[in-house]
Structure formats: structure tokens, C-alpha cells
Write a protein that binds this DNA or RNA. Structure first.
Lengths: 208, 208
DNA sequence: AAAATCCCGAACAAGCTGTCCATTACCCTA
DNA sequence: TAGGGTAATGGACAGCTTGTTCGGGATTTT
């Protein structure tokens, strides 16, 4: 029986992916050359091109792996299946916490430093997540489902980015609370003429 | 009196900016080389570097000009100054209409094709706009002003992008209505427990 | 018209990109 | 464990890009 894949090839691919990630952390994606990557991975030039067509191909393949892993992990956890549709933002809490733990990675992925590809790949992954948590029917059909999905994903990324760039000291749950409040209730509650009292333990002052 | 700037220099800069814009429309920003730009502009290589340090510098300088123009146009229109704070999304309607008229330009700027620089420059411009329209005090201080600004800008860009990519047939006012509804009222209105039946005359299915 | 400024074109070193090849090292399986 | 198959290597290649430098020529400004 032929093994899934040749061990050498697997090693090479792994080395390249790790090199890419490491380099992105310290130089950002755009600034990288194929040269940098193969140096870091200690892999021959021709070997690289035997596996990938360029650095973008390498990056994409990394995300594809990630997506497949997530898909599996998800169908595995599908045991406790419900509670989803109550809360269309169910993903966010875990996500913010995860981001806090791997702040370095998220920073490079989310900020401009990951490049356009990273950005859109992440949007894809999040979109899939959100689409599943979103109830199948929306009131009145006035707003297309897909629009809502994009709206949520965009808002989440905005929150994440703002957190890292401006208030990295906040706790995940604080950011999460703000994100949910704004996304669920909208702006109207913040600016109406009514002075509704909110007993919120305001975390920290705004510095603009 | 020394003229503001040498006529030749001005011509050169103009030619370069126009070349950049034209090329971005057909190839996207990332794919461009300085070579392409000076060919299109019919300008000598050394001349280019006498004015800008690279293509990014050229792009940035273009946005800076734009920002200054907008700033002037704004302080000029500041005659009818109020009505702002009633509607924190006042900018959107005009913006969507403008985008419809110059769809090609917006497409290249907003989608990935404009590159990270364009993206962040646009966010900057919009942020300034939104910040001014946003009432100075927000209820309860629970959510920092800047967070709200970013939220709005992100939602607007999301709407714009979705419009171009998925439903370009919609009119500006339709998109505007959806954008405002979602941003002002949030999701909560869309997902209540009530099961309202809708005889959906859905135009086209969500295709992912 | 003279002086100041700008543009041009060409040439340069340095770097990156993909692609080839012959050779070597490794892996898989029988 | 031996041998055929497969992958990795290093080097060399043409073609492209980037910035920089120069002197001569053209245009503007004063």
C-alpha cells in the first residue's frame, strides 16, 4: 500500500509552512521573498517550486489545511449541537479568547501585515462559521442573509483590530461585550435623545 | 515671485498620478511595477525617482491630495452646518450614490485590488468623516467613541463591497437602507423568536 | 538672454523569479 | 535488506525589477 504521501515531501511542506509563519510574524507577508522563505526553511530553491508555484500558493495551502482542520473539529463538537440559533454571535466569545492567547499570530493575520490573501481567507473562514450560527430565516427578508453574514464578520474583525491597535489591555470579555452590544443593538441606543441609564462597569477611558 | 511649483514638475506629477489610476483600473495595484507606471506616463525612470521614492509613495501622495480637497470642500459646505448629529450616518447616502457613479474606481479601491495602502487610506478618510458626524457624547461611556467610529466605517465598507460583488443591480438607496437599518438597529430585530412567514419573492439565491 | 531648474536616456549593481539539469540522498515495498 | 522509485540538492540561467548616477539637452523663470 502506498503511504499517503512521501515522508520527505511532507517534511518539506511542513518546513516551508513553519518558515512562512515565522517570517510573517517578524516581517509581515508582503515583505517576504521566496528567497527568505527557503533560507529560513533550509530548503532548495528548486524544491520549493516543485511544491508550490509561489509564496501565495504556499500561504493559501496553509489556510486550506486550517480550514479542513476546523471543519473536522466542528463536526466532532457537533454533539452538543444546539443553543446556536439563540445567539447568532455565539462564536465571538471563544474567538476573542483564542485571539488573546495567540495575540502575535492574530496581529499579523488581521492587521495589514498579512496581506490581501490572508485577509480574504480569514473572512472566508469566519463567514462559514457565522453562516451556520445564523438562524435560517430572517425577519421580513428585507436584508439578504449573506449581507448579514458579511456585516457580522466585518464587525468582528473591526473589533479585533481595534482591540489590538488601541486597547490591548482590555480583557477578551470586555471587547466581546462591546462587540455584541453594538452588533446586536446597533447605534440607536447610543445616540437617541433618551437618557437611558446603563449600569455598566465602564472599563477604561477612551483615548482618541 | 516664485511660482508655486515649476510647471514641468507639475505636469510630470500629474502624468504619473493619472497613469497610476489608469493602470490600477486594469491591473490592480499590487501587480504594477514602477516600470509600468513610467511607461504609461511616458516619463523617464530617473524622473520618477526624483519625485517619489516608489509606487507606494506615489499612491500615498495621491490620497493626500484627495484628503485635502475633501477637507476644503467640507469647510466650504459647512454653511448648512447642522442636521449632523441627528443622523450619525448622514454621510452614507451621498457616498453610495457617488460610488454608483464611479463604480469602476470604487471597485478597485475597495476590493482587494487596491492593496493594503489604499484600504487603510480609505479607512482614514472615512474615519475623519464619521468622527465629525458622530455626536460628541455617547450614552454611558460604555463604548469608546473610536470603537464606534471604526464600527461604522467597517460596516460601510462591508456594505459597499457586498454591493459590488454580489448585487450590483441594486440601487444606491436600497443598499443605503440596508446599511442604515443594520448599523442603527443591529441584528436583534432580525432574529426574534417569532416565526413570521414570508412568501419570499427572493430575487436570486445566496450563492456562496 | 541668462540662470536655474527640470527632464531624459543610458548605464549600472544588486536582487528576485522561475526553470532547467545532473547528481545525490532518501523512502517505500517486495 | 536490496533495489527501484521518488524527492531534494546546488548551481547555473535569462529575464525581470529596483534604485542610483551621470552628462547633455530642453524648458521655465527671472
Amino acid at each position: 500500500m502506498p503511504r499517503e504521501i512521501d515522508r520527505r515531501a511532507a517534511r518539506t511542506r511542513k518546513a516551508l509552512h513553519e518558515a512562512l509563519l515565522a517570517l510573517m510574524l517578524r516581517k509581515g507577508y508582503e515583505a517576504l521573498s521566496v528567497q527568505d522563505i527557503i533560507d529560513e526553511a533550509d530548503v532548495g530553491r528548486s524544491t520549493f517550486y516543485a511544491h508550490y508555484t509561489g509564496k501565495e500558493d504556499l500561504l493559501r495551502s496553509g489556510f486550506q489545511m486550517l480550514r479542513e482542520e476546523l471543519k473536522e473539529a466542528q463536526s466532532a463538537t457537533r454533539a452538543g449541537a444546539e443553543a446556536s440559533h439563540d445567539d447568532p454571535l455565539g462564536f465571538s466569545t471563544a474567538m476573542f479568547e483564542h485571539a488573546a492567547r495567540y495575540a502575535d499570530h492574530y496581529r499579523t493575520m488581521i492587521g495589514g501585515r498579512g496581506g490581501a490573501v490572508t485577509e480574504s481567507e480569514i473572512r472566508l473562514i469566519l463567514s462559514e462559521m457565522v453562516r451556520q450560527e445564523l438562524p435560517p430565516t430572517l425577519h421580513g427578508e428585507a436584508i439578504p442573509r449573506d449581507f448579514v453574514v458579511q456585516f457580522i464578520v466585518g464587525a468582528f474583525l473591526t473589533a479585533l483590530n481595534w482591540w489590538f491597535e488601541r486597547k490591548p489591555k482590555l480583557s477578551p470579555s470586555q471587547v466581546d461585550a462591546m462587540f455584541r452590544r453594538l452588533t446586536l443593538e446597533g447605534l440607536s441606543h447610543l445616540i437617541g435623545g433618551e437618557h437611558r441609564q446603563v449600569g455598566r462597569p465602564t472599563a477604561s477611558r477612551d483615548t482618541d
